[in-house]
Design a protein around this nucleic acid. Structure first.
Lengths: 209, 209, 209, 209
DNA sequence: TATGAATGAGTTTTCATTCAT
DNA sequence: AATGAATGAAAACTCATTCAT
């Protein structure tokens, strides 16, 4: 018994169209950029009148917000889908965790490169509020990573003097660079190499001990 | 005998004005964003007619290119001002090198936050070509870091199996995150903490060995 | 046996709805102005779908016409409700007549200021045809007043040389100004003062004889 | 030595264009109505690009304001051009004064019927602020007429018990009706008749004494 | 019959760019 | 060389009206 069953046919159509518009906007924004995309481009892509757009979203800005929110939600869900930080109890388990997360992110990215383009390249230049949202997302990522590290320190398989907050952010930076490089050169081998290098860096550093 | 002496007074004025326009454009783009900045805003800031702008730059896009190029040149110069990669011959020297570079970058950032804003947030959403340039800059950074690492591996103070290319990119990612966090919260302590954490991460990793 | 009894229940509902729409349109037009009122505003006020509007009126323009017609009819009825012009047979009776009419108009205005707003301010700027209607209404008012005057001249209590037509129009002007001032400042005392001054002006003029 | 002599040729051109735009807007607003007039209509009438409009006026509303202000200024100037209220010292002089003012108004109206159309029909339906301005103008007219009457009462050629304020407003109403009738039927004879009737009404009333 | 989703004509406004002075 | 007036393409947004359900 799904939610849709309780909706009228009309309402289902409405939801569908709304979702189609979101999708079309997502594609257009990612392909041409937010500023280069006119509402009429979105409408044209769907073969609807551009007035119809305004029945579902109040604004160009409004739909961007929804598009970005959707992406953020998806990213957050992807990362939180993994076990909770305190589910990891050993360095070995942590390495596996890292690998799994790397794979998940890689899958998301591969399946939908536009996500990265939109959130990393486009959304940064809308206005202060949108920038703030992105910064918050990055911050959230840092906190999440930090939580794993705090757990690792507590359980003793990470350095006692590890600055978890800062290191968390650093890790996010490395993830960002993965996404950026993927955008400019979507080569699975490079992605793979980058992922491994990051995991090695994390665990072992680069120096000889 | 400096270069200027060979230029006519008129030509010197011309060069000066051109440079002033660049500077004004830089400030406006950084403060209001590229799309939100009108050519007349730039001209107004200088107190010149906006028609004059077109005597020095062919385009709004054109001046952005020059502004970004200037920034890129400055960043590259900042990083290359340090000794060449092969001037480092020990882990200890490498650590010092890292610290020095971190300080330099931090100085540049602190002195001119607009640089980061412009290059990380604004320039990403102009068009494919501009994005490509940024990606190239990031790539260049990765190569530079990689060169140090290659040297370190050769001289034996870095892991033999270090993937220098990938790790180089990873380091760039961490630098990026420094800049981003600085933009959203320009707190010297956090910057400092981040820099230290990154250096520790690099050298020691996070795990207990 | 009233008229409604001969109508089907459905038809009565239909008439009721039509009348409700007219009423709602009247209020909206008066409150926000014709151009600022959307059909959907009218529908929303009634809680009906705005498509329904078009089952009862062909046009936005169409309903305005009906609204204005209703008002005009009401005004005409108000004024004609008084005795016919030739029912007045003395200056004294005429004065009383004037006072009664003034009171009636004042009552209508007070009860429904929107009428004045709509007919004097809004309806003037629709199109040539609507303007013509208003002019005709004003003309009709002038004729009505003139009829009283003609009667007065005939019966000898008005000047022999009275230009009844023109003076009739002049009187309408004074009534208009009452309405306008009431709109901008609905002060009963001022209304009262204006009404008295007009009646005195009419009968005695302003000069000392 | 006129003002223009101190202006540059460019500035004179600028002022001229601005004035041309005002004139064109005036005509369009009067002919088609404010709401029915697009900025591009105004530009088209002048054969200029519609962007040029915005170099001289910030808004459609803005230019309406200027058009209306110009008209109001002209009307006020026309009426104040006559001698001051206290320059009249006898009923005879007052009658002449009335006749002169009537003629002046008639001339203005005849020369430019659009003035009346714009201010009486169009400007009423823009917004509350514009309506307020018109009401103020009407009020000002009432005060001006009242000033004459106060003088007349003081000098003894008007009734002691004359309610000057209210009667002043009444007179404005009669002037309004002149303008309105002129709009719907620009017949010089009717105008003349109306003017005379009003003057007679004022001085003598309609009754037999 | 009532509904409201869809439509696109029409309007305002901005601003990069050109070019005569 | 500098200027800024003129331009019009382009874009966002509204809303009267139609019509399938």
């Amino acid at each position: 018994m799904n939610d849709d069953s309780s909706l009228s046919r009309a309402e289902r159509n409405r939801q569908q169209l709304r979702s189609d518009i979101l999708q079309a906007a997502f594609i257009e924004f990612a392909e041409r950029g937010y500023h280069q995309t006119a509402i009429s481009d979105i409408a044209k892509r769907l073969g609807i009148g551009h007035g119809t757009f305004y029945r579902h979203f109040t604004n160009k800005r409004d739909i961007l917000e929804h598009v970005i929110d959707d992406i953020a939600t998806k990213i957050i869900a992807t990362l939180e889908a993994e076990n909770a930080p305190d589910a990891v109890t050993s360095l070995e388990a942590y390495k596996e965790q890292c690998a799994r997360i790397a794979n998940r992110l890689s899958d998301v990215l591969t399946a939908n490169p536009a996500i990265a383009r939109l959130i990393l390249l486009e959304a940064t230049s809308i206005d202060a509020d949108m920038t703030k949202r992105l910064m918050n997302l990055i911050d959230w990522g840092g906190q999440l990573v930090a939580a794993y590290m705090i757990n690792g320190v507590k359980l003793g398989y990470f350095r006692k003097d590890l600055d978890c907050q800062s290191t968390g952010h650093a890790v996010v930076g490395m993830i960002l660079v993965c996404a950026l490089r993927f955008l400019s050169n979507p080569n699975p081998d490079e992605q793979q190499g980058l992922a491994i290098a990051i995991q090695r860096l994390l665990v072992d550093g680069i120096a000889i001990h």
